[in-house]
Amino acid sequence: MQILKVENLRKSFDGEVILDDVSLEINKGEVIAVIGPSGSGKSTLLRCLTLLERIEHGKIKVEADTMVDTVNGKPCYAPEETLRKIRLKLGMVFQNFNLFPHFSVIENITEAPLRVGGIPYDTAKANAMELLEKVGLTDKAESYPYQLSGGQSQRVAIARAMAMNPDVLFFDEPTSALDPELTGEVLKVIRALAAEHMTMMVVTHEMAFARDVADRVIFMDNGRVIESGAAESIFVNPTNERTKTFLQRYSDEN
């Protein structure tokens, strides 16, 4: 079942085209890895899909709701009410965690369910504790973000996003800000979510992880989707020359 569909998306900043004619879809239960060189538009794509950036052209549909469509050459976003509904279906984990420093770990996780979801406190708290158990941080419930390591912060950020029960969870380079020895604990959590068939789209530079965990890999370069397909086939038999060069460079480095 298709959860999200993107058609001919275009986005530029100050006249410079960042995303050009990007089309893709995300199916339920699928894990998609988005790879590609820096500046290829991967993060911008995620930001457009999560409504952090507005697109210039194209269409984005989330389940039955159209987030944005192009009418007479102009992007036309759905009314705020629909966008709110759509936002609740999308979760995002940032490179820099963006935890709320003035809230404890448990408050970081319960704040949105309480204020946005209108869930009773006891339920929100019980859910949060369950999520903390999943990410292995029950003992940090009362800690504050400044007391956490990068890996722990990112795991809390994942729990916080999961607390809103999103249909799709986006990860924007979730391990790029972490020391190498801390990336493992975050990837482990994402792997566990994949095992539960959580629908996820992960922008990553961790090729081994992309290869192991992703069902599908999207290779982007210069704002375009160059190649997309089953993880195994992209890594073993890339058809496009640019994909080959990119993957070659990575395997050379490791």
């Binding site: 999560t50 949105a112 204020r115 946005v116 996003a161």
Partner: peptide
Amino acid sequence: GQYEAAAVLGFTKSQTFTRIILPQ
């Protein structure tokens, strides 16, 4: 990033300001 985290979690602008931004 604080505004963005709040936005994707579904907070309204006024909730973001009063609960997330102003205390900091």
